[in-house]
Design a binder for these strands. Sequence first.
DNA 1: CTGAAACATGAGCAAGGCTCACGTTAGCCC
DNA 2: GGGCTAACGTGAGCCTTGCTCATGTTTCAG
Lengths: 207, 207
Amino acid sequence: MNQDRTAGTLRRLPVQKRSAERFERLLDACAELLDEVGYAALTTKEVARRAGVPIGTLYQFFSDREGLIGALAARNLEAFLGRVAARLEREAPDGISGMVDVTVDEFVAMRRTITGFGVVDFGAAGQDHILEPTLDNNTAVAGRLRSLTASLTGVQDNAELEIAVRVALECADSVLKLAFRTDPQGDPQLIAECKQVLNSYLNGRLR
Amino acid sequence: MNQDRTAGTLRRLPVQKRSAERFERLLDACAELLDEVGYAALTTKEVARRAGVPIGTLYQFFSDREGLIGALAARNLEAFLGRVAARLEREAPDGISGMVDVTVDEFVAMRRTITGFGVVDFGAAGQDHILEPTLDNNTAVAGRLRSLTASLTGVQDNAELEIAVRVALECADSVLKLAFRTDPQGDPQLIAECKQVLNSYLNGRLR
DNA sequence: CTGAAACATGAGCAAGGCTCACGTTAGCCC
DNA sequence: GGGCTAACGTGAGCCTTGCTCATGTTTCAG
C-alpha cells in the first residue's frame, strides 16, 4: 500500500541549539493549527510560517506532512507515559480499578490542556505506523503501558496481558474521543462509562 | 471549524437512469481505490477515470471528496443495518449476548466481503458528520441500532440505552479495526475479545 | 412540440506538498 | 588563528490535486 520507507518519518534530528528550537516551534505551530483548522486543512506552509521557519527547513526534519504530525504524536506519547508513570509511582494504586482511574484521568487532563492533543493524541486518525515503523500506534502505546502495569500490580506480564491491554486501550481511546466530541470539556458521564467498560472487561479478563 | 454548509454532502441525486448508474459506478470505483491505495492517496480524478465518468460529473453529485466518501459510508451503513435487521428477525436471539453475536458477526462478514469497507465502514477516520450533518457518524448508527435493539429485546428504549449503545458501538468499531489490522481476515481471538468487552459492559449496564 | 429541468464536459485555475541547487554557520583539530 | 567538514538555511518554483464554470445536449411532462 505504501512502499516508501521514508514516508511519515523523521529525516534528521536537530543537533545544534538553534535548530532544536526550530524543531520544537514547528511542533508547537503544528499543534496549534490542528486545533484551529483540523487535520485535513493543516498545511505545511502555514505551519512553517507560524513557526517563523522557511518551508525548506521543515522538510529538513520531517520527511513529509505525516512525519510532522507523527513527531507531534510521539511527543504527546512521551509526555503521557511520563505523567502516568509519575502518578503511578507516587500514588501506587492497588488493583486494576485504581490503575484505570489514574490512566483515564491523566488522558482527560491532557486532552483539556495540551494543544492539538484532541486531534492527534498518539496518532492521527487513519495514520498508523508513525510512532514505530512496523507497529500499530496503539500497539506501541500498549507495549509501554504494559511494562508499567505489570511492574506496579501483581499481574503476570504475558501474552494474555498484552492482548487485554491492547483491547482496553482501543476502547478507552474511542470512548474518550466520543466524550470529547460530545462536550469540549469531556462529557463526565461518558468518562465514567469509559472507566466502567475498562473495569468490567479487565476485571473479568485478568482473573 | 468548518462553516461551509455544503461540505461533505451530496449536491444532487440522480433521477434519470443513466446518471443513477454513473452514481453507483462512482461509489464502486471509490471503494476499489480505497482498498488499493488507502484513504489519503485517493484522488477524485482517478475515481472518475475508473468509473468512466468525466470529472465534472462527479462534482455534479458530490460536493467534494468527503461527500463522495460519505456517500459510500452511507451506502455501507444501509447495507449493514439491512443485514443485521434481517438476521435479527429471522433468528430472534434472546438476550444481549445473542444480539452482540449477530451484530459483530455481520460486521465481520462485511469487512471480509465488501470492497472498501475496511477503510471507511460508516465514516472514514477523522471524518465526522458525513452521514447526518448535525450528528456524529457513530451516533447516527447508534440511533438506528437502538431502534432495532429495543424492539427485539425487552429493554426499555430510554436515555440509558442510548448511551450504552453509543459506547458499545465505539468499542466494537475500534476493537474490530484492531482485529483487522492484526490479521486481514480478522484475528479470531480479537473478535472474541470484542464480544467479551461488549457482553461484560452491556450485561453489567442494562439492568 | 416545446420549454424547462436534468444532465454532460474538460480545459484550466488556485492551492498545496515537496524539491533542489546553492549559500552560510558551527565547532573541532592542528 | 586557520582550515575543514558536517550541519544548517533558503525560497522560487515544479508537479499534482481539488474543484469550477461556461457552454452545450438530452429527457420528458403537458
